[in-house]
């Protein structure tokens, strides 16, 4: 029995952890390529989830087949357009401004996106269905297929993204832009397009994280607070200077959160988990996989 509970905690940790990882990867992708720390990632994900929820509700009401699938595809399309628009309208005009200025723009975005969501969708919270409902019994283990779906989906997205960044010409262009934008342009790389692409990718990953966490949190304007905070901590823990760091960081936080909460104390869960994280950062100040950031020219 003890082993079963342990495994269940690990699976639960991997489930939420892979969502932290997705969200964190989006934040780091944008940060690496354009030096912008997008503090509005969570709110943007919340907004995307509300749109997805609305599509889902209307598809069901209209009696369309596979309403969840329709909503999922709607989420991908909407978040891609959403991410592009935010970049185009709010971020691109600030390309020449200071780091602090860019940061403040994303703080402003939190207010704009959250306020719009409250005005459009209201402040109530709504039930959202799981991708795959019900539970499954494997031996003595009781698990939700949804958990495996989430883990699988996150892994596939990250594998595709990593393959692209590592191996394709566009991926090398992304890394070149991250290291030295001006020289990348001399090579013929349209760095404006690269930046727009990172915002689109990050917003899609945020939307998926939002949709996957929604059954647990309900859909509401405050739904992403926890995932957003933890994804940032995951990015810091793993290291903002690597792409794999935030993924590992997200998984570690997800698993630790579950284990400490179950075996030690739910009251002290947050304190203990972040205590350990601070300890790690004392010994690895740039994160587990990070290196001292090189000054960009």
């Amino acid at each position: 029995m003890a082993r079963i509970i342990f495994i269940q905690n690990i699976i639960g940790g991997l489930e939420t952890g892979s969502l932290y990882a997705l969200a964190a990867l989006g934040v780091v992708l944008i940060y690496r390529v354009s030096d912008v720390t997008n503090f509005a990632q969570g709110e943007m994900a919340m907004f995307s989830t509300f749109v997805t929820f609305t599509i889902w509700t209307y598809s069901r009401a209209a009696g369309l087949p596979y309403p969840y699938l329709i909503a999922f595809i709607g989420a991908l399309i909407f978040s891609a357009i959403f991410g592009y628009s935010i970049e185009r309208v709010f971020i691109r005009p600030t390309a020449e401004s200071s780091l602090l200025g860019k940061m403040i723009v994303t703080f402003g975005l939190i207010l704009i996106v959250n306020g719009s969501a409250a005005a459009i969708f209201g402040t109530d919270s709504y039930y959202m269905q799981r991708a795959i409902g019900g539970t499954m019994i494997i031996g003595n283990l009781v698990v939700r297929p949804h958990s495996f779906f989430v883990i699988f989906l996150a892994l596939v997205i990250m594998a595709v993204l990593f393959y692209m960044i590592r191996n394709t010409m566009f991926g090398v262009a992304i890394r070149a832009t991250a290291q030295d934008r001006e020289t990348a342009r001399l090579m013929g790389v349209n760095t404006t397009k690269v930046t727009a692409f990172t915002w689109i990718m990050a917003t899609i990953m945020g939307a998926i994280a939002g949709l996957m966490i929604a059954p647990a949190t309900n859909v509401s304007t405050g739904m992403m607070a926890d995932v957003h905070l933890k994804s940032f901590i995951a990015a810091v823990l793993g290291g903002f200077t690597s792409f794999i760091g935030p993924v590992i960081g997200g998984l570690i936080i997800g698993i630790m959160d579950n284990l400490v909460g179950y075996y030690i104390s739910t009251n002290w869960q947050t304190v203990i988990v972040y205590g350990i994280l601070i300890l790690i950062l004392i010994f690895k100040p740039y994160g587990l996989f990070g290196s001292r950031p090189q000054k960009k020219v």
């Binding site: 090398v172 890394r175 070149a176 290291q179 030295d180 001006e182 020289t183 990348a184 001399l186 090189q294």
Partner: peptide, 9 residues
């Protein structure tokens, strides 16, 4: 000028 090699590539 200064070569501008991408250091991490």
């Amino acid at each position: 000028e200064g070569r501008k090699i991408f250091p991490d590539l």
